[in-house]
Simulated scan of single mutants.
Amino acid sequence: MNDDRPAPAEIFSHYLKLLREEPWLEVAMCWTVVVPHDHRSISVADVGARVSGGTPHEAHETAPLEALPHYDGVHPMSVAPAGSAVVLFENNGFLGSLPEVLRRLSRDGRVCGIYWNVEGNNRLSYAADGRVLVNLDAMFWDEWSGDDFAVLEPELRAMTGLLAGDEDDWQAAAMTVVELVTGVRLTGEWLTEAHPYVTFRWPVAPEPLLRGRSA
């Protein structure tokens, strides 16, 4: 964690409030933040290539979340810059949580994200330089072992400390970890704005892009 960022408790309060104000978020979502090492922004086209791994996909002009297409076999993902980082958001999606996608997105950078669905399936993930280093069930945080904390020690310890008061707030706590790691905040304003998006055909490629291959 950087000392100049808000305290974990302040960030946690923000996400508790966001989940109260946007209750649909609690049902199913996938929020992924990509931070390149060289601070150069990642284009929508590059995101599309990395997520898909070369399988069919299409980039689109801006649209609000409620206007994105949802039908069999097609998965939409909003893509928007946040400084040198890029925010990927899926309403009731999961592509950003897949290990193969995380490996591709984290090439020459790092990625942190949280996913959950209506059935309680979820993943709090962190990847860097093409390797998935953290892949945890955020709901059962009290079952993590000491080794689970190794890569994101301060951020994950902050999360478990926040949950000591109410374990049911694991979603807000996991979102707090994403902000602590990336410095990027998800807001209600962002969720209502229009952003470029990419649609993918399922399944995406299972293998990571080869290092040095153009995306």
Rank of each mutant, 00 (worst) to 15 (best):
W144N: 06
M175G: 05
V35P: 00
D4E: 15
Y126Q: 06
A215P: 11
R211S: 11
W190F: 06
S106V: 09
L210S: 04
T199C: 07
M175H: 13
D142W: 11
G183T: 00
C112P: 04
L68F: 06
A127G: 07
V181C: 12
D148E: 12
G188Q: 10
R213M: 04
H57K: 00
V177K: 00
L124E: 01
P206L: 13
A128I: 03
H14V: 05
D169G: 00
E22H: 15
D46R: 08
F89V: 12
M139P: 00
G96N: 09
D147Q: 13
L210Q: 06
L95M: 11
F89D: 03
A82H: 13
S214R: 15
K17I: 00
F89M: 09
A173L: 02
R213W: 11
D148A: 11
S125P: 01
L68M: 12
C112F: 01
V204H: 01
R213A: 09
P206E: 15
P64T: 12
G54W: 09
S84D: 12
A67P: 02
W144A: 04
V27R: 15
G130K: 08
S145A: 11
D4R: 14
L18F: 04
H39P: 01
R185G: 01
E100S: 12
L152K: 05
H60D: 14
S41K: 06
A9Q: 15
S125H: 10
L162Q: 00
A158Y: 03
A138I: 01
V47T: 10
P23M: 01
E143W: 09
S43G: 12
V151N: 03
A7W: 10
Y71G: 07
L19H: 10
G73Q: 10
D168Y: 11
R107I: 02
W202Y: 09
M175F: 15
D166Y: 11
V151C: 05
N2R: 14
E90I: 07
P208E: 10
H14S: 04
T55E: 11
L68V: 10
M77Q: 08
R157F: 07
G120S: 11
V44Q: 02
E10H: 05
T32G: 04
L210E: 14
N117D: 14
W190N: 04
V132M: 14
G83R: 00
L180A: 09
V101P: 02
V181I: 07
A164N: 02
